[in-house]
Write a protein that binds this DNA or RNA. Structure first.
Length: 251
DNA sequence: AATCCGTTCAACCGCCCCAAG
DNA sequence: CCTTGGGGCGGTTGAACGGAT
């Protein structure tokens, strides 16, 4: 028995979004907040698949997006993060305020790949283009999670998350990229309506354990209005310089 | 001016993960 | 446990665009 389709394709619009559709989506989210994507199109009066609405909102309509014009520092950061995380675009995006996974993925495929090849670097393995040492994608791993070549043979495949929920790539990659902050715990630059449960509950770390124990995917999500998101965005933008500076220290 | 060709990027597709029942 | 549904992710597609011929 197959899964039911996420929407009735025969009665949904496809392709490029019109200005009117954008306005409808924004207006709906402004009032009701985002979330419950499957029922959102109907509630908003849109003839669109819920997934399509989500994508449109996350990648293009959501406040605080930068859109284009990648800075040189962002390029280098993406390259370093990709070397460690592989094609984990959402994780990479979470470290780049105002950038989306889709945008970074496209940017990687259209610009950075070529840039690396021009430098004689293999964009997949992050080593010399002639197949030298460096990071390698283990083909047996789902979705190309990279591991160091030596470790790929010495250790069993890992999901990148230790059993306690902490990122296990951090210590491993500290050795390879000691200047790279790979703390993948939830932090303001990647908030996008995701907050730490214990922080949300007003608990101190000592009371509820480390916030880092909650992986991003499992973070508490809650629905809030556009105004709330915009307010937070303004606060984030004020702090943004600080976050980027502290993260890319040593570059 | 017309056509070809490479590039870009918005959008879709299919799969996976996880929580709820 | 198993099934189901929702949300999210990464890979891929194809229309639009711009430059070259």
């Amino acid at each position: 028995m197959g899964r039911s389709p996420c929407c009735e394709k025969a009665h949904t619009n496809r392709g490029a979004w019109t200005k009117e559709e954008d306005e409808r989506l924004i207006a709906h989210i402004k009032v009701h907040g985002n979330g419950c994507w499957r029922s959102l199109p109907k509630a908003a009066g849109l003839l669109r698949c819920g997934k399509s609405c989500r994508l449109r909102w996350i990648n293009y309509l959501r406040p605080g997006l930068k859109r284009g014009n990648f800075a040189e520092e962002e390029d280098e950061l993406i390259i370093k993060l990709h070397g460690v995380l592989g094609n984990k675009w959402s994780l990479i995006a979470s470290r780049l305020p105002g950038r989306t996974d889709n945008e970074i993925k496209n940017y990687w495929n259209t610009h950075i790949k070529r840039k690396l090849i021009g430098r004689g670097v293999d964009p997949r393995a992050h080593g010399p283009a002639n197949g030298g040492a460096g990071l390698a994608i283990n083909p047996s791993r789902p979705r190309g999670v990279p591991v160091a070549v030596d470790e790929a043979t010495a250790n069993p495949p890992s999901t990148g998350l230790a059993e306690d929920g902490h990122s296990s790539v951090t210590s491993m990659d500290d050795e390879r990229c000691p200047d790279l902050n790979l703390d993948l715990s939830i932090s303001p630059p990647c908030s996008e309506a995701t907050v730490c449960l214990c922080c949300h509950l007003g608990l101190q770390a000592s009371e509820a354990g480390s916030c880092q124990a909650i992986p991003i995917r499992h973070g508490l999500r809650y629905h809030r209005s556009l105004e709330e998101e915009e307010e937070e965005q303004e606060e984030e933008e004020e702090e943004e310089g600080h976050h980027v500076d502290s993260f890319v220290h040593g570059y």
